[in-house]
Amino acid sequence: MGLGGAAPAKNGADVSAALELRRVYAGYGPFRALFDVNLTIAAGEAVALVGSNGAGKTSLARVASGLVTPSEGSVVVNGRDLTRAPAYRYARAGVAHAPEGRSVFATLTVEENLELSIHRIRGRKGLKAGLEQAYALYPILGERRQQLAGTLSGGEQRMLTMARVLVDAPRLLIADELSLGLAPLMVQHTYEALQQLRQSGVALLVIEQHVTHALALCDRVVILDRGTPTWIGSSEQARTRLQTVLHSPPTSN
């Protein structure tokens, strides 16, 4: 059941949509994780993706950044159909994905981790400014710039992952388990940075455990259940609805 059409407000701006998933089915080998997903995120719009463990949130994020190729349906990024394209084409089209967990190059230093994408986007000349920006965001990374990323603490690795996508200034930023492992102060910093990006027109797709944080940032909420969006609505509507969903026992698979 496609609920994309039932979404309120902003999806009138289809032409300039940052991301459009049309009737997407996806999975891993024979295993299906997503069924008939329709979702449109307009430029500058922030969407929170909510659902229980194993609902398919991570899988949806992977489809949106090209890590997982859908078996059916299509993925359109900034008006370009990238359904079968490799992940790097998504990144070049302006999708920045911070995967869940420790997604850093453990054998590269903090600085080298950041250089990879900053160099691609801003060239050699912009390298320094980009690094400064990342270190201003998370000063601890600046102190550890020569340390191997694999030796950072979990929270620091998370900061490194977020620093990369925040400095990217993409068209669409996807953050999976955004604040998991971050200290409260750093969560606050991260949200402030996201808020700024949003105001400058970046679309956001946020997967977050602290639903209250996410609701404060996002315009719209998508609830995913067993691989398919079962509810899409505004943050205000979501607030009342989630009270009930979140406090009922999780659905078993």
Partner: peptide
């Protein structure tokens, strides 16, 4: 640097926009 990145994770390298 790119070669070292690919060694560790081709996918993460691609997320950085590198083929």
């Amino acid at each position: 640097l790119k070669m070292r990145a690919v060694v560790e994770s081709p996918r993460l390298t691609e997320l950085n926009g590198l083929a």
